[in-house]
Design a protein around this nucleic acid. Structure first.
Lengths: 190, 190
DNA sequence: GAGAACTCCAAACGGTTGGTTGGAGATGAC
DNA sequence: GTCATCTCCAACCAACCGTTTGGAGTTCTC
């Protein structure tokens, strides 16, 4: 039968996303990733060098997916809320993304693919500047960081939510609250 | 020489805090914890059963320290900002706390010591209700969760901050921004 | 079509890890 | 003072984990 190296590579990446998102770098097992992908684990080393190489490849590939094309579209306080809502939806559709984002901070010394991520963040910081009258650059960046923290927190602080909230399973409510809060914040910050 | 079992136990806990906060459950090594504590690793099993037992003991002990006695004192929007600032300061003084809080969510199936943590959260949710005129119970809980997410995010999304912020080392600036944002949010939410 | 170069797997390797054991010293009750 | 009980440690063990090897099948090149 013919080889399909691209499929092999991508199946390893997909399995890597699942395992690393669930267990982190230290917790994930090369063995389990290979089994999950239905591929011999030796392939990991041929394609990605070592475990760290696969982890970096997974992060690079996925973290792009989280922010790529995600922009503040309407430059008003409501636009910032709506932007936050869309980010929330992306995480909802792929819960591996927020988890990988957190593992990156907890287990890595330096950000992955900083060069390709910075422009996207810069664009949104500028948009936030435009959306909130009288908001400086620094304040705008911090507002963006806050929006991401709040969204990602739903997946990264899920055990805490179980303690704080009366109904920790109401995802739709959380989405609505986060959107409302970021809108209100953008309105008042001006 | 006389035994000091309480000191042995507490040295193991302290070393556990350091290692688990830095590396998480999967990444931490019993061997390293024992060496860090200057105690034989067999002691871990006599005192805490197994690795999971030590992890739970560490979380239980430390997460209490994060929230214990931390309350919204002034029931006004400014009081909520000030509360958030004090939480930030606690994390600043003991950066292990926010990291442990995140590891708990990422690596555990259920929250640790939920029974003892819930009352503290409930009190603060009530205080927030009082601080913001016209704020319902659900909204108040979500505001609390947001405050914690934003504070803890500084330690749990540090790689992201390096990408988003022009000056990712300015902790004091972040503190000030977070306090201002939570105050503004509490003001506008009413 | 021969041979170099490549894909892929089964099995093995060596260091590490969570967990155990056996025994030496310390304590306390009587 | 002696016997049961406790603290503590050095050494050990079996399983595991990241990585490598050897070799069989496949594709490319000329």
């Amino acid at each position: 039968m013919a080889w399909d190296t691209e499929a092999t590579r991508s199946r390893l990446l997909d399995a890597g996303v699942r395992q690393f998102a669930a267990l982190g770098f230290a917790g994930a097992r090369i063995d389990a990733i290979a089994r999950d992908a239905g591929i011999n684990k030796e392939r990991v080393y041929r394609y990605f060098g070592d475990k760290q190489g696969l982890f970096s490849a997974v992060l690079e590939h996925e973290l792009d997916a989280l922010f790529d094309g995600l922009e503040v579209e309407v430059t008003t306080p409501e636009g910032i809320g709506e932007f936050t809502g869309r980010m929330f939806d992306r995480c909802l559709a792929r819960p591996e993304l927020p988890r990988l984002l957190i593992w990156e901070s907890l287990e890595l010394e330096a950000p992955v693919a900083a060069d390709s991520r910075q422009p996207v963040c810069a664009v949104n910081a500028t948009r936030i500047c435009d959306a909130v009258r009288g908001l400086g650059r620094v304040e705008s960046e911090h507002l963006l960081l806050t929006a991401i923290s709040v969204v990602v927190g739903w997946w990264g602080l899920s055990r805490l939510a179980e303690v704080v909230l009366t109904d920790p399973d109401a995802v739709a409510v959380r989405r609505q609250m986060v959107v409302a809060q970021m809108t209100a914040l953008a309105r008042e910050a001006g």
